[in-house]
């Protein structure tokens, strides 16, 4: 337990869930506005898109497929939102945190690995070729992004000398880690796009597969998958703010507001980026991930380690 943060009782979990959903809705709203503008309409006309889509899906009938693996399908579908919430358990909001685990960084990493299982299960469940291929694609991509992600979040932990997210935030008092470890920060942002299945990592849900893992979902199932993706993106942004963008540090505003403002801003940037990038084939992402990104992020880690050793002595 670190001194800098106040651990709030478990009764605050619902508030964290509401904040996470609100951020997810913000991401979807920004996306709707950008989509409207891309279609040549006024951006304001896209603001209602997430709500309209929610209303439509909640009224839609559930589609069933022949010989579906119902339990595994439900776990994959409902699990994404749960995992996103479990991710933000270790992310501080200003001075408060739900749990300042001594190994919070590893916890976040473990939760993003659970996404591997969930997306594949969502693809396996409906007993449909398109969605199963989507699930396979996600795991193929996971092999490309997971190691760079791990080394990217190792860098701030090395710099802070602790795996507790609270210590990592405290270590950024003067200078944000994003400033002096930009490669790790960018790689982590890419990984957030990857585990929320967004372009350039959107092949598992690609249009060439009739929606891939989303192909056979409908009604509330589809809503859970879509909302889960947005929530994962929001949770990833919140974690990036904590470990790279100084968490609640900032002038004038209270710390909790800084956390929210930065998370919202990073989320909006990620939404914008994902609309600007094409979907890349998973077999193209793998060599890029292993030959280009992994060595880069390892070099970044080396630089950070050298700075810590030289600066510490």
């Amino acid at each position: 337990m670190t001194g800098a943060l106040t651990q709030v009782p478990a009764g605050w979990v619902p508030l964290a869930a509401v904040l996470l959903l609100a951020l997810a809705a913000l991401g979807a709203t920004v996306d709707g506005a950008l989509a409207a503008r891309a279609q040549g309409r006024h951006w304001g006309s896209g603001l209602g898109l997430p709500m309209a889509e929610t209303a439509r899906l909640l009224r839609q009938r559930r589609r069933r497929t022949v010989a579906a693996d119902r339990p595994l399908w439900l776990i994959g579908t409902g699990g994404l939102l749960v995992v996103a919430l479990l991710m933000v358990v270790v992310v501080p909001l200003g001075r408060w945190t739900l749990s300042d685990l001594p190994v919070g960084v590893v916890w976040f990493n473990a939760m993003d690995v659970v996404v591997w299982a969930l997306v594949w299960l969502a693809g396996w469940g409906p007993n449909s070729a398109h969605s199963l291929v989507g699930g396979y694609r996600f795991l193929a991509q996971a092999l490309a992004y997971e190691l760079p992600l791990m080394f990217a979040i190792t860098a701030p932990a090395v710099a802070a000398g602790s795996l507790a997210v609270g210590d990592v935030v405290a270590a950024q008092e003067g200078l944000w880690f994003a400033v002096w470890m930009p490669v790790a920060f960018l790689v982590f942002c890419g990984a957030v796009l990857a585990f929320s299945v967004r372009a350039p990592f959107s092949a598992p849900a690609g249009a060439d597969l009739a929606g891939g893992v989303l192909a056979d979902s409908s009604g509330i199932d589809r809503w859970l998958l879509l909302a889960g993706r947005w929530a994962l993106m929001a949770a990833g942004s919140a974690f990036a703010v904590a470990v790279f963008l100084g968490g609640g540090h900032g002038p004038l505003l209270p710390a909790w507001l800084w956390s929210l403002v930065k998370t919202g801003a990073l989320l909006a940037v990620l939404v914008w980026v994902r609309r600007r990038l094409p979907t890349v084939r998973p077999d193209r992402l793998l060599p890029f991930g292993w030959v280009v990104v992994l060595p880069l992020v390892l070099l970044q880690l080396l630089v950070v380690a050298v700075v810590v050793v030289v600066g510490g002595s």
Binding site: P102, V106, W107, A110, V113, V114, W116, L139
Partner: peptide, 16 residues
């Protein structure tokens, strides 16, 4: 803590 969470991480990854 570390070993427990790493076991979760590795096993989910491995089983996937």
């Amino acid at each position: 803590d570390y070993l427990g969470i790493v076991v979760v991480l590795m096993m989910v990854m491995e089983m996937a």
